[in-house]
């Protein structure tokens, strides 16, 4: 399913949750949304889902408005950290409700997933643990093979084993059905594995959208040891994000191709020159110019 947002803004009583957000997600792509708490990730996903009406701008899923056209929602799946169920229903009653709601429901799939997770059909939802409720949510979201999956911090609160399992399941789903996925998460390491594109949301604004491999190819931390301090101009290059000095050791965060960076620093005949691997978090912070994140 193709998702398209154009200048979407959303206000809640004077507070602007989304501000002029525009992007396109081609069918079959996995799009990650990163951002601090309160950035508007949940609002964004709910607006795409059709639960909220944008104050201005337009949201289209496959060319149709998910808020007004109910049939589109039959192909959208939603999984959030906050889960709401009919607590008095048993697992099988909950499955039955979803089965009758979604025409594309696959019974064998739901049974297979339930058995895989070890969920008892007769247990009441209120008696399930938090982790089990998340698993139930996964079963419900995947069993009707939605063409668009919206995931709002689905791995928060999961232990590393379950997290990996969840991602594996998700990737299997994408590989098998070509599902379009929008996932918001704090876990950049997860997003790195599974996303085609990653977008940064900060205070309701979409700062940038990039491919992870592009990011990794363009930002490096270089440690240079120089016998004599070079001229001031040496450090005034615009592709240098930041320079920190500790005696004769200079740590530079720089944007550019690795080979050209190496040549530039080699020209200064350093005593030592090292490229330090940067975790994705630091790359992000450097790339976004420290906007919204403390980077001193």
């Amino acid at each position: 399913m193709h998702v398209s947002l154009k200048e979407v803004a959303k206000y809640f009583g004077g507070h602007s949750a989304l501000d002029s957000v525009s992007f396109d997600v081609p069918p079959g792509a996995v799009f990650g949304v990163v951002g601090p708490n309160g950035a508007g990730k949940t609002t964004l996903l709910k607006t795409i889902m059709g639960m909220l009406r944008p104050s201005s701008g337009s949201v289209t899923v496959d060319g149709r408005n998910p808020q007004t056209e109910t049939a589109v929602r039959a192909g959208i799946g939603y999984l959030a950290e906050a889960q709401y169920y009919y607590l008095d229903f048993t697992v099988s009653e909950t499955l039955c409700f979803y089965r009758e709601t979604y025409p594309t429901w696959q019974d064998e799939r739901s049974r297979e997933l339930c058995m895989g997770f070890g969920l008892s059909m007769r247990a009441k939802v209120k008696h399930l643990s938090r982790g089990q409720r998340t698993q139930l949510g996964v079963v419900l979201a995947l069993s009707y093979v939605p063409k668009l999956l919206l995931l709002d911090e689905p791995t928060a609160g999961l232990d590393p084993v379950m997290r990996r399992q969840f991602l594996a399941l998700l990737m299997d789903e994408v590989a098998q059905h070509g599902t379009t996925v929008l996932i918001s998460s704090h876990q950049l390491s997860d997003l790195e594995r599974i996303c085609d594109y990653v977008g940064v949301l900060h205070q309701g604004k979409l700062l940038d959208v990039a491919r992870i491999e592009d990011l990794k190819r363009q930002v490096f931390t270089v440690q240079v040891v120089l016998a004599e301090p070079p001229t001031d101009d040496f450090w005034r290059q615009e592709w240098m994000q930041s320079v920190r000095q500790h005696g004769r050791i200079y740590t530079v965060v720089a944007q550019g191709e690795r080979d050209s960076l190496a040549s530039y620093f080699a020209a200064a005949k350093p005593l030592a020159l090292e490229f330090i691997e940067m975790p994705l978090e630091d790359i992000f912070i450097a790339r976004m110019g420290g906007e919204g994140y403390a980077f001193k």
């Binding site: 792509a29 996995v30 594996a168 990737m171 599974i194 085609d196």
Partner: peptide, 14 residues
């Protein structure tokens, strides 16, 4: 297969 590997490694099939 692409699908098997994607599921095993939890990596984007693309």
């Amino acid at each position: 297969s692409v699908r098997e590997l994607a599921g095993q490694l939890a990596i984007n099939p693309n």
